[in-house]
Design a protein around this nucleic acid. Structure first.
Length: 198
DNA sequence: ACCGGGATGTTCT
DNA sequence: GAACATCCCGGTG
């Protein structure tokens, strides 16, 4: 199974060049790879730029959010709460600053490395059950901001290993925000134990 | 299981 | 100076 993931081609640019809400649901079941570590995406949230007060790109372009304004298929990585990194595949067209926050993974490959990178995680399901947890487990940080997922730039990519998409994903409001709290732009795999908050 | 508070520093007002 | 797309630990029940 690791072999399938390593050989699978990255998702094409066109996959990302769409409404982030469509990309968010279609990312469920795909595999995020960073170096020798990988996990199946089980939870996502869409952020809609100028139409979304909760988005980092709601007001204007800045040094931090610049990647969101760039072409789709690149990874926007930001630092928050003084210690955590979170990662987002950029979606839509260039200059349309929309993206999808990857919120949870089911660990797949390189689990021993993940455990070493996340000593606080006691159980397997604590390894990647949150947007900052999964970045720590996969070793994703600010040095990956802007990396091209389609080219596998800096070792990061998202692949389709042939697994069927989840049949009936759950849709809910987003987590951890104080603006646009009623927008139903979070998706997760029903019943999956690796989701950050069922 | 659930809840409350502290960590820690960048970004924006 | 406040807010922050979070996590962890230690308390209680």
């Amino acid at each position: 199974m690791d072999g399938v993931v390593l050989q699978a081609p990255p998702l094409p640019r066109a996959f990302y060049r769409r409404d982030p809400r469509l990309v968010a649901v279609d990312l469920l079941g795909k595999v995020l790879v960073a170096g020798e570590r990988s996990g199946r995406i089980v939870e996502t949230e869409a952020y809609l730029g100028a139409a979304d007060p909760a988005a980092h790109s709601y007001r204007r372009r800045s040094a931090r959010n610049a990647t969101m304004f760039g072409p789709p298929g690149h990874l926007y990585v930001y630092f928050t709460y003084g210690m955590h990194w979170c990662c987002n595949p950029v979606c839509g067209d260039e200059d349309e600053p929309v993206a999808v926050l990857v919120r949870a993974l089911a660990p797949l490959g390189g689990v021993d490395q993940m455990r070493a990178l996340r000593p606080a995680a006691r159980r397997e399901r604590d390894l990647c059950s949150g947007p900052a947890k999964l970045c720590q487990a996969l070793g994703i940080h600010g040095g990956h901001d802007g990396a091209d997922l389609v080219l596998g730039d800096r070792g990061v990519r998202i692949v389709d290993d042939g697994t069927a998409p989840p049949p009936d994903p759950v849709v809910t409001t987003r987590v951890g925000i104080s603006q646009a709290v009623d927008e139903p732009w979070r998706w997760y795999v029903r019943g999956d134990p690796h989701v950050s908050r069922p």
